[in-house]
Each structure stands twice: as C-alpha cells, then as structure tokens.
Write a protein that binds this DNA or RNA. Structure first.
Lengths: 126, 126
DNA sequence: AGCTTTCACAACCTATCGGTTGTACAAGCC
DNA sequence: GGCTTGTACAACCGATAGGTTGTGAAAGCT
C-alpha cells in the first residue's frame, strides 16, 4: 500500500503544483504560517476559493492543518515534495544520459557516413 | 520576456507532469524514442489521444518532435525539467530551513519561557 | 497512379477545475 | 445570550481537460 500508488501521489502533487495560486500559497506559507483568511487577502480571490486550494494542498499532503480554535494555521510538509523531486531527478538523469548517448550515436553515424541505419535515434540535425 | 513568465512555464510543466499517461509517455520515451503510434499501443487509448498528450508535452517543452517522413520521433528536452526541479529544490530548501528555524524558535521560546512573542511562527505545539 | 500507413485536426461529450454566492457551524467577545 | 469572526460545505457556473469518432493530409509501397 506504499510503493504501489506512488503514481497517484505524483498526480496529486503535480496537480497541486500546477496551479499558480497554489504555488503562491505555498511560497507565502514558506515565509510564515498563515490562516486561510490571511492567505485570501493578497490573492484577490474569495476566502472560500483559498479554502478549496488548501484542501487540494492538504489532499496532496503538501501541507497539514492544525485546528487551533477557529484559526487553521497551515504547516508545510516537505515529504511529498521529495516524491516529486525524486521523479524529476530520476528522469533528468535518464534524459541527460540519453542525450549523451544520442550525441555519441550521432557522432558514430557521422563517422560511418551512412545515412539510414535504423528507425529511431535521430534528433535535430539539419 | 524571459524571467517574467517562469510562472507560466511552471504551470505548463507541472500540468504536463500531472497526468499519469503523460508521465508514462515520458518514461517510455526516456527508454528510447517512439512514434505516436508506438506510444499509443501500451496505453489503451487512441492514437489521437496520444497525439494530444504529445502536443501538451511539446507545449511544455518537455519534448520536441522532428518530422521524418510520416513518422514523428519524439526527443526529450530536459531543460524545462530544470525549471520544475529548480522550483521544488528551492522550496524544499526553504521548508527544511523553516523547519530548522522553527525548532530553533521553539527551543528559544521554551528557554525563555514566555508564551506570546509574535503573531506567526507557531505550529503543532499542543 | 493507387493503396496503405502515420499522424493531426475538428467536432463533440462528459467530468473536473477554479471560481462565485449563500449558508451554516464552531469559537471567542460584549 | 447574542453578535462577530474564521472557516468550511453546498449549489451553481463557465472554462478546460481528456477522451472519443470521423476525416483528411502527407509520405512510403507496389
């Protein structure tokens, strides 16, 4: 029940991060805890809308809220960010790797002076 | 026109990464170039749907396509991933930082034995 | 030239998103 | 007890996302 739905986690996290308002909320929260009302002010959207955004962020486990009377201070939870960062880092590595191998391959092709070879592995080489 | 709409870039990239199908497409492309048709097979969706996904990925500049006859090999573009990775890394740093400072702050509060201080910077401390 | 293959565009449908307004509920203040 | 504050839930709305089917265009095959 842990490693199976990492995909779902990724979807939740990336979806949450896909919204500029939500990123702004996270950025603001990073500079200090705030209540939903405080968060609503600078964003020119209603308090209810912020509440929804917080719900999304909470669903993605990017934040956690503690009930303190009627105030709902939001705490940032960096753990899920690691999930996203991990995916990106992994793929960045693969891509960089592939890019290197691609250049090698193209160099080899150029050296051999043939022009057709296979069916893939070609990129922007006009 | 470069540093201003980084927000837009982030939105595009995170939105693109928010879809499991698109992540699967990227993962598959990372293991080797493929055409839209080849990508369509394992995903149980139509070729047209994959074409749309590729368009989104291209719009986010996560991939670039080259026209080779009727085949459209997709090349991965790691640059935009850096944008996303940068944002995450930055915020992970801030969050970790905040977490440290928070603990420091709480320790300081505990040491001083006062109970009010400011208006923010409080978290789960029942 | 004609057929096939590979892809993308267009139109359409449904579900979800991001937003609003209205309301309710729980907790402090008078 | 009653008012105000802070937040969330519900209903609604327009726009968009993700999917489908249908069609057409461009390049290769025979």
């Amino acid at each position: 029940m842990t490693a199976v739905d990492v995909e779902d986690e990724l979807t939740l996290v990336f979806s949450a991060l896909a919204d500029p308002t939500r990123r702004a909320i996270l950025a603001r929260l990073a500079r200090g805890d705030a209540t939903a009302g405080e968060l609503a002010e600078p964003f020119a959207i209603s308090q209810q809308a912020v509440s929804k955004h917080l719900k999304v962020l909470e669903g993605a486990r990017l934040i956690s809220r503690t009930r303190t009377a009627q105030a709902r201070p939001c705490a940032l939870d960096p753990v899920r960010l690691d999930t996203a960062a991990g995916w990106i880092a992994r793929h960045r590595q693969v891509w960089a790797d592939r890019h290197d191998r691609l250049e090698e391959h193209l160099a080899a092709l150029r050296a051999e002076q043939q022009g057709d070879a296979g069916n893939d592995e070609e990129a922007a080489t006009p």
